[in-house]
């Protein structure tokens, strides 16, 4: 009977945790649907009869939100593609080849992944400004590639290490070049890992704030986090617009995140496979 009590306690704990975890999300979405008057009531109202999509209409049709959204999509997608390509190349190389300094590179990758942003942001900004890329998509894309690359490599090295080497050897017997083996055999086999890593690096780029703030300043090319931040006190002074805008910003991350969550842990913990 003791274990029964434990199970009951576990359900109760899980319920509490679920409320704690979900409350901010639910309250944000709920508030984004409320009419203006009800947003500033105390005590807050919980009725659902007056809910509507008016703030979403406002945000999507008469605010700079769509522009920010487009900026975020461009920067996140392009930087993810480049970063995953580089990471796949480096990851395969690190998982398969043996050469001096390999251990050092793997550890540097890990170190880079843990490096303080405060230390990187200033030099990165100066460098990007110096080559004339401040306030451009390309500038921010470069910044995102460099900062998502280490983690992507760390995870992909682990995935590639699991691809059976016999397959590559068979390809080599048939006289295929290394490049062919990589493109035709290795990449397809590691596809699930690559998708996970791509999604993860997309989410990181999508959520990133500091580099965006520093590199894009207040220009037209601001990404969503920077745009939303700057518009506090401006177009988004009202909580209604803000809650609708943040709910929309959250949507892609949430969906992608729930989609890859199972594979994420494996990748995180398996990173140490070679060292």
């Amino acid at each position: 009977m003791r274990s029964r009590n434990w199970t009951l306690a576990a359900y109760a704990a899980c319920a509490l945790f679920a409320v704690f975890a979900l409350a901010p999300l639910l309250w944000m979405i709920f508030s984004s649907l409320k009419p203006y008057e009800e947003l500033y009531n105390f005590p807050p109202t919980f009725g659902i009869s007056s809910l509507g999509l008016h703030y979403y209409e406002k945000v999507l049709l008469s605010s700079p939100f769509p522009q920010f959204l487009a900026n975020s999509l461009i920067v996140s997608i392009v930087s993810t593609l480049i970063s995953v390509l580089f990471a796949a190349m480096a990851g395969w190389s690190l998982a398969r080849a043996r050469f001096r300094g390999q251990w050092l590179i793997l550890n540097t990758v890990l170190l880079a992944y843990l490096f303080p942003q405060a230390l990187i942001v200033l030099p990165l900004f100066t460098a990007i400004a110096k080559i004339g890329l401040a306030n451009t998509y390309l500038g921010l894309i470069l910044a995102y590639v460099t900062f998502t690359f280490p983690f992507s490599t760390w995870m992909l090295t682990a995935y590639f290490a699991k691809v059976p080497i016999e397959i590559e050897e068979a390809g080599r017997m048939d006289g295929a070049s290394n490049l062919t083996i990589f493109c035709r055999l290795v990449l397809p086999l590691a596809a699930p890992g690559i998708v996970t890593v791509a999604i993860f690096s997309f989410i990181n780029a999508w959520n990133e704030f500091l580099y965006g703030l520093v590199i894009l300043g207040g220009g037209e090319k601001r990404t969503l986090p920077v745009g939303l931040y700057n518009f506090v006190g401006g177009e988004f002074a009202q909580w209604g617009e803000m809650m609708a805008a943040t709910s929309l910003t959250m949507l892609p991350t949430l969906l992608l995140f729930l989609f890859i969550q199972r594979r994420l842990v494996g990748g995180l913990t398996a990173g140490a496979v070679k060292s």
């Binding site: 975890a21 999508w206 939303l228 729930l258 969550q261």
Partner: peptide
């Protein structure tokens, strides 16, 4: 339970 993890910091 993993929903908070998916939150962008601005959100």
């Amino acid at each position: 339970l993993i929903v908070p993890w998916a939150f962008p910091s601005i959100v």
